[in-house]
Design a protein around this nucleic acid. Structure first.
Lengths: 130, 130
DNA sequence: CTCGATAACGATAATTATTACTATTATCAT
DNA sequence: ATGATAATAGTAATAATTATCGTTATCGAG
């Protein structure tokens, strides 16, 4: 049914780069870094592949308060924090909360497939610089 | 310090409309409805006032999987659900989870000010239509 | 190993949501 | 009433993302 996926070195580079980063870069940040290795890569290619990888569940798309999406190569369920000052997206290392999905399933007649928890406030760096 | 806020009938109409709706409309939906009462209202005015009301904490901005923000006149802490098929945003009526913010505060060195929980999956309507 | 179908590409145009700008109007304290 | 300025309508500009399109790369079948 679905069209077969062919290998591309660009996609491999994008995924490899994402895996080296803990800070959930945006499409443009990915683009800026990848072009150091592949100078003539197109921004559209970056978007196309990030979308495809996210659709396949290989990476995670993080929609935050900020206007642009961030991407995360870690697909294990975990929590994120978005700083309202610098818009950085960071991980919060705490145990998952299966209770949440369970109670939402009981409380609604929807098919709950996923839950995203996004904390916001001020990150460590923005806190110290007064 | 901050500039004083002056009354405007447009803003009042926007807020009044939002309060009649349980379904968290987007800026454009607000615009389309308000212009039935105020035919020459500008879309920019709708955006300006929604932003101002959200900044003041009078209404809530909901950033979802979909590309456009939704707005909610109910600022009491509660949970939302976004349908991956029709992109509708709906409430989920369940008890708040103070535990979440508490544990995030313990697990990080950030100043946690807020948390948004967004469930996703298929809504009741999309479930029934096959 | 060719070959052929087509997924993916680079480059760029188009689209979409949102914000900025500007001259005018409305609010409101004095 | 009047003056300072917040808010407006209308529109131009911006920013992020997606669509288009001619070309290139992948890869299974012969």
């Amino acid at each position: 049914m679905s069209t077969p996926i062919k290998y591309s070195s660009q996609r491999e580079a994008i995924l490899r780069f994402l895996k080296t980063r803990k800070d959930h870069p945006t499409a443009d940040v990915v683009f800026q870094h990848i072009r150091e290795d592949i100078p003539n890569i197109s921004l559209a290619t970056v978007y196309r592949n990030l979308n495809q990888l996210a659709a396949a569940g290989t990476i995670l798309r993080l929609t935050t308060n900020g206007k642009t999406d961030h991407f995360d190569a870690c697909v294990e369920p975990h929590f994120h924090f978005c700083c309202r000052s610098c818009n950085a997206v960071k991980d919060i290392d705490m145990e998952p909360f299966p209770e949440l999905t369970k109670r939402a399933t009981e409380a609604s007649n929807y098919k709950i497939e996923d839950v995203t928890v996004l904390f916001s406030g001020l990150c460590d760096e923005c806190l110290t610089e007064k």
